[in-house]
């Protein structure tokens, strides 16, 4: 529709665009600052001269990280966790979602299983009993402590089963008459048509594993077993102590500490920042399917 905008409308649009651009910057500038500090010289970073552009540009911090054992080791743990954890999550989620997407006539025990899983969405044992169970099942200090407890996320399962339910049933019926097993119906009919939904939950699982840090701190006794985000959290907590101290920061901090720290934090965010703009539509689909459904 083409019509002449009133003056008030023009002013509103102008102010609105300005405001939204400001909000956009609020989302981006903190990370620009982080990157700038990590690319600055140690002296400039220490003197807090760096704002949004590197001062005394250098790749030194990143060079140094290439040899930093703690960083590389925790990166390795994270990669292992993401790969292993995502595969297991995916298998368990698909296998649970498929039977539960059947009707009560097709699967008489469906309601029973649904309740079994649903209860865990509303009630949990809490931090301490969970810790004791992990300890009792001898998972402490093992990567499985980061994978098994959350191996089946009920929200993801519900999302997938709702998707499965909307798949037309005629192909499946034809296959059943031909004597296909449930396993091959799932594998040959359901999975191929569910690729968009699977991509969405795959992303959520990968991001979830990459980002978790507290379970690493809680269940791993030795820092050598920390995934990247847990290792980063120890760095962040160490600044925290300095952020509140009134002493001269320069004297307290090792010269290269600040640029190194920011470089590591930035690298912890980098994979997501790189991937996310391209996969955004899948995330959005997952969110709107999961929350606003009929």
């Amino acid at each position: 529709m083409v019509y002449k905008a009133s003056l008030g409308r023009k002013v509103f649009t102008f102010v609105n665009v300005l405001f939204l651009v400001a909000i956009t910057l609020l989302g981006i500038l903190p990370f620009v600052h982080l990157l700038s500090v990590s690319l600055s010289s140690n002296v400039a970073a220490m003197a807090a001269e760096v704002k949004l552009w590197p001062v005394g540009f250098t790749f030194e911090a990143y060079h140094y990280l290439g040899k930093k054992v703690e960083f590389l080791r925790s990166l390795g743990v994270s990669v292992e966790r993401v790969v292993l954890g995502t595969i297991i999550n995916m298998v368990l989620t698909v296998l649970a979602a498929y039977p539960l997407s059947k009707s009560n006539e097709q699967f008489r025990f469906r309601t029973l299983y649904v309740w079994f899983f649903a209860i865990t969405m509303f009630f949990g044992g809490g931090l301490i009993p969970t810790y004791i169970v992990i300890k009792e099942t001898a998972l402490l200090n093992s990567i499985w402590a980061l994978i098994l407890p959350g191996a089946l996320n009920v929200w993801n399962m519900v999302m997938l089963l709702n998707f499965f339910r909307n798949i037309p049933k005629d192909m499946e019926e034809a296959a059943t008459i031909d004597g296909a097993s449930q396993w091959s119906i799932l594998w040959r009919i359901y999975l191929p048509v569910s690729l968009p939904a699977l991509a969405t939950i795959l992303l959520f699982m990968m991001v979830g594993h990459w980002n978790s840090w507290f379970d690493g701190i809680l269940y791993m006794n030795s820092p050598e077993k920390y995934p990247l985000q847990s290792y980063l959290s120890t760095l962040v907590t160490s600044i925290n102590k300095k952020a509140i101290s009134l002493d001269d920061l320069n004297a307290l901090e090792n010269v290269s500490e600040k640029t190194l720290r920011t470089a590591q934090i930035f690298l912890g965010a980098l994979p997501i920042m790189l991937v996310y703009p391209f996969l955004q539509k899948y995330f959005i689909k997952g969110i709107t399917v999961g929350s606003v459904k009929e």
Binding site: W210, G268, F283
Partner: peptide
């Protein structure tokens, strides 16, 4: 999509 470790690190740098 970022973890609280990353966001916490950024916030602490900003508000020091």
């Amino acid at each position: 999509f970022l973890s609280w470790t990353v966001l916490g690190g950024v916030l602490l740098e900003l508000f020091m």
